[in-house]
Design a protein around this nucleic acid. Sequence first.
DNA 1: AACGAAACCAACCGCAAACGC
DNA 2: GGCGTTTGCGGTTGGTTTCGT
Length: 231
Amino acid sequence: MLKTVKKTTPCCTKMGMKRGPWTMEEDEILVSFINKEGEGRWRSLPKRAGLLRCGKSCRLRWMNYLRPSVKRGGITPDEEDLILRLHRLLGNRWSLIAGRIPGRTDNEIKNYWNTHLSKKLLREGIDPQTHKPLDANNSHKPKEEVSGGQNLPLDPNSSSHTDDTTVTKISVSVFGDEDFGFCYDDKFSSFLNSLINEDPLDSNIPILSQSLQTQDCTDEIVGTSSSLGHD
DNA sequence: AACGAAACCAACCGCAAACGC
DNA sequence: GGCGTTTGCGGTTGGTTTCGT
């Protein structure tokens, strides 16, 4: 799987690289540089901008804090509801979830989930990973193990993000042990949109079925997993 | 007022896919 | 097609703030 043993580059531990919280001066330098030169080429950006930070750190700071589109402030109830629904569907695919919530970053949503929502679900007796009642999880092992499925909408173990841009497997066992198979991203996107625009949880099942039925996903289920939309 | 515990969140780390030569 | 580099992701850490005693 891994091509070769890669020399990791602990960029932030390099000599002279600054770490920790960003100062206003650094923020200003980064913002004005990106406004002038644009995003990208993160690795060389610090040098070009005159910052004593690693590229990763600059990118993170920009993406999570400095971008003009980043919305600051508390998560609204609507957003919270959306996060819950998307997480039930997608699992810990924070960037995917964030992509559906304008102005919110994956880091912010991840933090909000870990500090608020997962605890809230636990208080309500719901497993934050499976979104099933805790009792149900304990009393009987779900049968998706038999079919190779998992409790999570998406396989938590294979946490690879391989398929985000090509193919996405939706195993919506949460909604009743159904495996919807593989769908290409545009289909998945429209499916998510339908989910977002529709209301509450229980009504999602027909929505899922309907939207997926119309998307001839089954064509992609068999035989294409090896090509996975590449080339 | 002082202290410790809990909560919060920005930032870091390591991994893997995507990209480019 | 192979290989090195860059980018993006999710998990985790640790510093700061808030809360309770």
